[in-house]
Design a protein around this nucleic acid. Structure first.
Length: 737
DNA sequence: AAAAGATGTCATGGT
DNA sequence: AGACCATGACATCTT
């Protein structure tokens, strides 16, 4: 078991690496404080690939790639959390449609503003399209799981490679050892190694002395069938974008001191880059995804707001007309016209977290609209009657919170472009398209986020690195090879993990050769299959069949070895490890496999059964030590590789999440802005229709509308309104501190 | 022939 | 204490 210390240190290290790689500044905290595992697990360790105990459970998996028990629904969950919080932030800005209408209804013809009773209200029923939002964010994972997996898991090991014909001409007989070597000393052993290295052929000639006969027979036997050829595993390689400011009536804009104008202006500057960014994202989505959202939310040509403004002023402004009617005529139209846009908000809510809002949006919009927030909307901080340009401090603003400038700095367009693998050329093309058509597809499940989350990422990865393009196939290959082999340390079930891995496989491409190499030599599995022992799958520590026969079987009759047999023998010779050569040279009477893999008791028992010289015992112990260490080293390397790959995958996941969250954020900001504009237009319209006792309009520089706590809308002096607005502004800031 | 990657080995430290 | 494992560093082999 690993100590807590190890968990912490290693986990922290991994975590640090992840953070530094991803550069995620904001979201990680959320993740960590959530009850979901990924990063926390990296920190705490239990499921980390680094955990040794777990490592042992991965034999049959993609060699542990499935270790990270990443919840399939993690994305959804995070999305839900994010969206939820963002929506809560949005609440403050939702349009108090009902209340505004109420005011309209009860406006006193004499000009005194007294309306206080809620009206039937338009609310947002007209935007029933909100409820049309469908398509929960389910496509992401599915598309990921599509990546083909799990083929040919059984292939490996069954294929005997073509025997290479590079056999030496020499008649090499590897004797069981003449008394050339004194193994009592390790130094001597090393000498042997050198000799072996320098030229097995030549040295082996020397050995041929005593062991020739036995060996010759062995060679015959094995050579006949050819089965004994070490089987090599086949090499697998073999702002204002939608802002209708220009569409707005300048008169209205200038004459009315709408707080919205002032409040929206500066954040939108910042938003500009978000918009650009957003355009890019959505363009990508549009291209790849002929999503239903396009159909659902296809906007009528022309800007909704402009339409609105063209209609609203045209409505006869009659002092005596019922403002309710007016609102029905004007605002009602507005909303029906708006609906495509209004949908944008709930459309974004299509992601799971927001779904609940969908069906009840008309009520929720009203209910969540707090008087305070409205006050914040309606009462600009500045007193001067000039226009937006002089905009003072922003509204207490969700934009302030959402659109953290540092965040913007951090996330450059380039960054995202790279992450998304987005094609600048396509982007520019699509950008025009996007600009001309304001159709919004804010349904995040259809949106680029989900796309980029699956297909997008793979394509991007394939383009940028070599890691992802064939990640699935690579993984499957890797998994097959590993499930076949499995070093001693890796023992467990894990087809399930395989599947999970397949899902999560974003983009790493284990190198086949690496894995195959690592796998084909592993003796531990084969040692469990006695019948395979002599098939000689080149498990290093098994004695070659010839050697086995030489040592364990009494020399049989006098077979004559032919050339082929000799060649086979030579081939086998070359497949033998150094320790096998040593063992044979020392006439060790059992296989290296046994030496290495036998449990201690059995091993000692085995030793006691034989009369062994000190040199032999020493060699055997060394063989056991080296053999075990060799496997340990293999495991260690695998583990290391797994860790790296897992980290790589985690980084990619985080990058994807980050990009997706950014897109969602942009979408929210956009819809937020639209809502603000609508509120503003309503404000202006309402205010513009107000008349005092003399039938003159109120001066926007002197009066403002205030949304009272009881649902009524009051006309109050602007100074007072500003005062209250300032108070509202301070509160949240103080709270932060 | 050199370089890079893969694998083996040793030393060391931990369980 | 001994067996075993993990791993860094180096050696050796392979490509």
């Amino acid at each position: 078991m690993l100590s807590l210390k190890k968990y912490l240190t290693e986990g922290l290290l991994q975590f640090t690496i992840l953070l530094s790689l991803v550069g995620v500044r904001v979201d990680v905290d959320t993740y960590l404080t959530s009850q979901l595992p990924p990063l926390r697990e990296i920190i705490l360790g239990p499921s980390s690939a680094y955990t040794q105990t777990q490592f042992h459970n991965l034999r049959n998996t993609l060699d542990g790639y499935g270790i990270h028990p990443k919840s399939v629904d993690l994305d959804n969950y995070f999305t839900a959390r994010r969206l939820l919080s963002q929506v809560r932030a949005l609440d403050r800005f939702q349009v108090p449609t009902t209340e505004v209408n109420a005011w309209l209804v009860h406006r006193d013809p004499e000009g005194s503003v007294s309306g206080s009773q809620p009206s039937s209200g338009l609310a947002l029923e007209s935007s029933s399209g909100l409820q049309d939002v469908t398509g929960p964010d389910s496509g992401v994972r599915e598309s990921e799981t599509e990546q083909g997996f799990g083929d040919d898991l059984e292939d490996l090991g069954a294929v005997a490679p073509p025997v290479s014909g590079d056999l030496t001409k020499e008649d090499i007989d590897l004797g069981a050892g003449r008394e050339v070597f004194d193994y009592s000393h390790r130094q001597k052993e090393q000498d042997v190694d050198k000799e072996l290295r320098d030229g097995r052929g030549e040295q082996e000639d020397n050995w041929a002395g005593t062991g020739t006969d036995a060996l010759a027979q062995d060679l015959l036997v094995d050579g006949e069938t050819g089965e004994s050829f070490p089987a090599q595993f086949p090499d697998v390689t073999s702002l204002p974008e939608a802002a209708p400011s220009e569409n707005e009536s300048p008169v209205l804009q200038n004459s009315l001191l709408s707080p919205l104008l002032t409040g929206t202006e500066s954040p939108f500057d910042l938003e500009q880059q978000w918009q650009d960014l957003m355009s890019i994202m959505e363009m990508q989505a549009m291209e790849v995804n002929s999503s239903a959202s396009e159909i659902l939310y296809s906007t009528p040509p022309g800007d909704a707001l402009s339409t609105n403004y063209s209609l609203a002023p045209s409505t006869p402004i009659n002092q005596n007309v019922s403002l309710h009617q007016a609102s029905l005529g004007g605002c009602g139209q507005e909303f029906s016209l708006f609906s495509p846009e209004v949908e944008s908000l709930p459309a974004a809510a299509a992601s799971p977290a927001l779904l609940p809002l969908g069906p009840s949006n008309s009520t929720s919009l009203n209910s969540t609209f707090s008087p305070a927030s409205l006050a914040g909307l309606f009462f600009p901080p500045q007193l001067n009657g000039t226009t937006n340009d002089t905009a003072g401090p922003e509204l207490p603003d969700p934009l302030g919170g959402l659109l953290d400038e540092a965040m913007l700095d951090e996330i450059s367009l380039m960054d995202l472009a790279i992450e998304e693998g987005f094609n600048p050329v396509q982007a520019s093309q699509l950008e025009e398209e996007f600009d001309s058509d304001s159709g919004l597809s804010l349904d995040s499940s259809h949106s680029p986020s989900s796309l980029s989350g699956s297909e997008g990422s793979s394509s991007s990865s394939s383009a940028s690195t070599s890691s992802a393009s064939s990640s699935s196939s690579a993984s499957s290959s890797a998994s097959s090879s590993f499930s076949e082999e499995g070093a001693v340390g890796y023992s467990s079930d894990s087809e399930t993990l395989d599947l999970e891995e397949a899902e999560g496989a974003v983009g790493y491409q284990p190198e086949y050769s690496k894995f195959c190499r690592m796998s084909y030599q592993d003796p531990s599995q084969l040692s469990c299959l006695p019948y395979l022992e002599h098939v000689g799958h080149n498990h290093t520590y098994n004695m070659a069949p010839s050697a086995l026969d030489a040592t364990e079987l009494p020399p049989g009759g006098g077979f004559k070895k032919g050339g082929k047999e000799k060649q086979a023998a030579d081939f086998l010779e070359k497949q033998m490890s150094r320790d096998e050569h040593r063992a044979r040279a020392m006439k060790i009477p059992f296989t290296n496999d046994k030496i290495i893999n036998l449990p201690v008791e059995e091993f000692n028992e085995l030793l006691s059964k034989h009369q062994l010289s000190e040199a032999q015992l020493s060699l055997i112990r060394d063989i056991r030590r080296r053999g075990k260490n060799k496997m340990a080293a293999q495991n260690c390397r695998k583990r290391k590789l797994d860790t790296i790959l897992n980290l790589e995958r985690d980084v990619e996941d985080l990058q994807r999440d980050k990009a997706r969250l950014l897109r969602e954020k942009v979408e929210f900001l956009r819809s937020l802005r639209q809502m603000k504009q609508k509120v503003q237009s309503l404000y202006q319209e309402v205010f513009g229709r107000l008349r005092d006792e003399n039938g003159r309009p109120y001066s926007p520089s002197q009066y403002a509308l205030q949304y009272a706590g009881d649902g009524s809308v009051l006309l109050i002096p602007r100074a007072l309104a500003d005062q209250q607005a300032r108070r509202q502004e301070r509160k949240p800031k103080d709270r932060r501190k």
